[in-house]
Design a protein around this nucleic acid. Sequence first.
DNA 1: AAAGAAAGCGCG
DNA 2: AAAGCGCGCTTTCTTT
Length: 366
Amino acid sequence: MISDYEQQIYGYADKEFNIASPSQLAEVLFDGLKLPTNGIKKGKTGLSTAATELDKLRNKHPIIDLITQFREVSKLKNTYVDTLPSQVDEQGRIHTTFNLTVAQTGRLSSSDPNLQNIPIRTELGRRIRTAFIAGKGKKLVSADYSQFELRLAAVLADDKQLIDIFNSGADIHTETAALIYEREEEDVTKQMRSAAKTINFGIIYGMSPHGLSVATGMTNFQAANFIDKYKEVRKPIFEYMDHVKDQAKKDGYVATLFGRRRPMPDINSSNFAIRQGAERAAINMPIQGTEADLMKLAMIKVDGLIKSKFKNCNMLLQIHDSILMECNEEDANEVAHILKSTMEEIYKLPIKLDVDVSIAENWGEL
DNA sequence: AAAGAAAGCGCG
DNA sequence: AAAGCGCGCTTTCTTT
């Protein structure tokens, strides 16, 4: 209950204030309660109260957990619970707008309302998805590419070892941890796998040692060592990243596997921060952009196949690496199969693509 | 009163 | 000096 959190927070703060106001919250935490400010990021207006910063204060004061929970619940209420019902039409359906020319990488975006960011990561948030239900006599069918971007990074970098790991069906993060820590797979701990997972994803965004240390809790030194080891293990990935950066600096653009370009006007900026930002964006674009290209091809092909074969079967949403469809109950298994095979075989690549499908009455159970 | 910046956070 | 890509939405606070 939001008001319960509010009362408890006011109790610890010894006064009522607007918890949703970062400046008032910072005043309570750092002036009133005198919580330590070393290591807390500063923004343009003062000390940050973002979740990553509050995390550093977790064991310093019980008010921190309450603020985190207050934020989770108020975010879900304000953004989803209070707004989505009013956007439902007479048929009981809700409609988004897919924008095709907004995202710099070629992805779709969704707005009014955004149905590409409906919660799933927390138990409470996931419950919001259960409100999205299939029509009478129908089922929802979802199909998700598994580790799509990392597979594409392996292909673009022509990293044979990484491609082999994916094609063998092994757990990519465990395998990476085994290589970095020089252990057998069965001796990889949860922490090792988690660190490998962070870097597997972080690397395709151009993550630095500092970023890795913040994300994992390692020291800067440990993070730098870890990345050095990763560099040895995944040489082709790093050579590829250098190659993309060089190309961008020379040509002023980067491109997807299919040649679709993104101009990179800031890639030679004399401003260090701007230039580095452009470099990270350049590294990521061919990967995220190729994902978007393949998804569009898959959507077109799936739609053609489905429309010619089934009645009352429609694509409802695309969420970057997944497609959500609704079809008659009796067609669900077949639709799922068509989705899986079409998406996995959409384009001949040196890597196996893997699509997970599932069928349910509501979005929360998928 | 409206418009914009900033902070924060939901998703992939 | 900065430190992880791509989005859209809500709230607070400031500027016009």
